[in-house]
């Protein structure tokens, strides 16, 4: 069993296997299950992700509070104009990340990756890349195992909870997970995956969790959008041969320590940051039907 990213990469290199394979083998061992059982469970998760993305980019999805919905469709329409600055794959990933989180906010069915609030980044990037490189089903399922392997290290050595470590622990972790998985799918090495994870998470450090009215909507949906774009850039940088000067495990440790010193007002309590802005408070009062002076 690997305890950190260094061990994960070392295992993959010494066995001459991709990171996804190391994760599959560990899961088989932990559950006492066959490869087929483990693979099929992940395939089911993939199907759920695809359905959420499809729903989000085609239907007019609106949340109960009215705070979020419809933005994934706006972006898909805009992409058709051909005038986008950041390019098709990038905006496709962004809109599909938004799609997932809009479905989530509307109480639709999603797969937490690693949490519900950060569920957009991994599938958003995956289904955008599918359009570009047409991967096999197995490659797509492996994408999720590679993401999971990195998330597993973060969850055990740091945190994937916004209440514990801020948004850097949720969308930050998801972004690193996606970046690492993109690298493997695009033919990069395990070491390049770890650099992509490090580069992605470094740029999410310090991100606070400050949801308006405590709901998983504002700014969570748009943070998933930026997470998806960050993941693509980090993966491209790593595939180009750029390395992280700070090793992956030390970046994860830095994230953990930043989370520990983050004030509680900025850790999913809706007491600080965007939640405490005049507009944030106004929305909160409106949604819950309480007067502002109670806050």
């Amino acid at each position: 069993m690997f305890r950190n990213v260094a061990e994960l990469v070392e295992l993959a290199q010494s066995k001459n296997k991709p990171i996804s394979e190391i994760m599959i083998e560990q899961e088989m061992d932990f559950r006492g299950s066959t490869r087929e059982e483990v693979y099929n469970q992940m395939k089911n998760n993939l199907v759920v992700m695809e359905q959420a993305v499809e729903r989000g980019i085609t239907e007019d999805v609106r949340s109960h509070s009215g705070l979020t919905g419809g933005d994934a469709v706006l972006l898909q329409d805009y992409m058709k104009s051909g005038n986008s600055l950041s390019g098709h794959t990038m905006l496709d990933a962004v809109s599909k990340a938004i799609a997932t989180n809009e479905v989530n906010a509307a109480m639709g069915t999603i797969c937490a990756t690693p949490t519900a609030g950060s569920a957009g980044v991994v599938p958003g990037t995956l289904f955008a890349i599918r359009e570009k490189v047409n991967p096999t089903e197995e490659q797509m399922v492996r994408y999720l195992f590679t993401s999971g392997a990195f998330g597993f290290v973060v969850a055990n050595n740091a945190s994937i909870s916004g209440a514990a470590g801020g948004c850097q622990a949720e969308v930050g972790s998801a972004t690193g997970m996606a970046a690492a998985a993109i690298v493997e799918l695009m033919g990069g090495t395990p070491e390049q995956s770890s650099h992509a994870f490090a580069i992605a998470l470094k740029n999410m450090l310090g991100l606070v969790c400050d949801p308006v009215a405590g709901l998983v909507e504002v700014p969570c949906v748009k943070r998933n959008a930026m997470g998806a774009s960050n993941a693509l850039v980090a993966a491209d940088m790593s595939l180009a041969g750029i390395t992280s000067r700070i090793p992956c495990d030390e970046v994860i440790d830095a994230m953990y320590k930043i989370g520990q010193t983050m004030p509680s007002a900025l850790r999913e309590t809706a007491q600080g940051g965007l939640a405490a802005t005049p507009t944030g408070r106004e929305l909160e009062a409106k949604i819950f039907g309480v007067s502002l002076d109670r806050k």
């Binding site: 989530n104 906010a105 937490a112 519900a116 999971g148 969850a155 998983v216």
Partner: peptide
């Protein structure tokens, strides 16, 4: 180790919006 399965990370499949406030 608090998380032991890859499906703690990629999962659960759930109705949104919050893994802690809804799925939990």
């Amino acid at each position: 180790m608090k998380f032991r399965s890859v499906f703690d990370i990629i999962g659960p499949v759930m109705i949104g919006p919050s893994s802690s406030h809804t799925a939990g």
